[in-house]
Amino acid sequence: MIAGENLDPRVKLIIVMCLSTMGVFIHNISVLFGILLISFLAAVIFGARVFTIVKKHKSFIYLFIAISIMQSIFSPSGASILSIKGVSILTMGGLEKGLIMMERMSVVLVSASIMTTTTTRKVIQGLVQWKIPYEVAFMTSIAIRFLPVFMEEMRDCLTAIQLRGIDLKKIPLKKKIQIYSYIFTPIVAGTFIKSQKLSMAMETRAFRAFPNRTSYLVLNMQLQDYMFITLSILLTIAVIIVSSLYC
């Protein structure tokens, strides 16, 4: 058996793209559930700590559930499950749409966890060797690198705003939205300050001084990598076609 971590990072990227594409294009609830299971399986095989990642993103799961319920309420169809004074709140069709939405978002989250099994440096190198401009690849890696910093800043800001005596649980939704808009002010201002400092630091280290860059790290695709890429793309196309024809 081929160990997932030995595969080229580009293979992982292709697999993630295939799974996410299937998640977006397929509308059948059972097929989507199957894709979600495959995504879980792939993440486990690649050595991603998928349960830890899901646990870390618990708040997103609540958001998924909230969006699914909203979807269910605002896109009613089929038999009514719950109605208040004759107005259908929850319908079979709405509930199904909500579940599809939840499955779709879970596929994206779980499949993306596969990318945590490789380093950002390798991902950049893979993209550069695929002729993606280095600047674009570098920006992508910077964005990934700074994500945990932004998450920490957001947590701190949320804590700080509550410590001003604001009880988030007790205030109405309208004011809650207003508070979240306040939280983005220090985050956005901080992002500008950080990017200014970072660009200055990069200039002093001669970033883009020469048009071409050489790299000590060079990725070489093996036969197994090509096999996985071909198989993933073919399977994705097949599943999408079959699902659109028969489901």
């Binding site: 701190d156 705003i161 410590l163 220090p186």
Partner: peptide, 12 residues
Amino acid sequence: YLFQNPERQLFS
């Protein structure tokens, strides 16, 4: 509570 970096607690 005053954070080490005051920028994190200025919102407006």
